[in-house]
Design a protein around this nucleic acid. Structure first.
Lengths: 152, 152
DNA sequence: GGTGAAATCGTAGACTG
DNA sequence: CAGTCTACGATTTCACC
């Protein structure tokens, strides 16, 4: 699926996308242009979806994170579809997953403070279509946050 | 805490960090150098922690994602610390959070296939220190994946 | 895939308003 | 704190081996 050299390139770019093709090429044993060609190819194939800045959540004011388990009234395609569209449209909902297990969906939500969370809980999540049960877990400590996939 | 213009800059950089200061400046109503100065400042202040490539998990072979709730035998600092260090060190553990609620920790784990997950479950997670209970939820659908904080 | 060179682009600095 | 202008450097891109 992916070659060893490609994986090394991806590994580098995951953690610092500002490295130049020349720098990465040196690390992986390729010339700058060969490395650059591979990167372009990885972009074209969609392996690399884009490049983004990693922001510090706390410095943005997002000091609280929650995992919210949501149960819906029923499982029909209509119900699930309506919920998913509404959830995805809310900026407060950072992530949303349909999962097996006790609940139907798991959401990741960030809040600025307790008032903000109260607002999100009551106005946003409770207001999503067909929600009948909500159970929140506050993140007390982020032991490991997302840094990238094990690609090497 | 953060000014409107800074937020706009961060918004742009979150989604495409390859935009130049000139391009972003145009969007936010600043000259290239003024915009560049602000970006540097945001980096220096630690609001921007770095820049990375967003990779497509499926094209890397990570077609399965799990949320794993882990309960430990006890809550002493020693127990928690040992678990956290071990969990953070495993590349298969993409994320790890200490949470309120029924379990102690929530882990996010990616696997290449069912065999890979079996391996991770039995060899990795069960082998983390002081684990007495594991409950996994398979992600059946990613409704919304992480795109960035609502910063505007 | 490598080389090398050309053209482009982006950053950084000094200075002014 | 923003704008302009400039210069330097780095990076991409291309044709060819």
């Amino acid at each position: 699926m992916l070659e060893k050299t490609d994986r090394k390139i991806l590994h580098e770019l995951q953690f610092d996308s500002r490295r130049s093709a020349a720098t990465i090429g040196e690390k992986v044993g390729l010339s700058a242009s060969a490395c650059h060609r591979r990167i372009r190819l990885l972009e074209d194939r969609g392996v690399i979806e884009g490049y983004g800045a990693r922001l510090n959540a706390e410095k943005l004011g997002y000091v609280m994170t929650f995992f919210v388990e949501v149960t819906l009234e029923g499982q029909s395609e209509t119900v699930l579809g309506a919920f998913e569209r509404a959830a995805a449209a809310r900026p407060e909902v950072l992530e949303c997953y349909l999962t097996t297990g006790t609940a139907d969906y798991v959401l990741k939500v960030s809040a600025q403070d307790t008032d903000d969370y109260e607002r999100i809980h009551r106005r946003v999540i409770s207001g999503l279509p067909h929600v009948i049960r909500i159970q929140s877990s506050l993140v007390m400590k982020t032991v490991k946050s997302w840094r990238g996939y094990p690609v090497e």
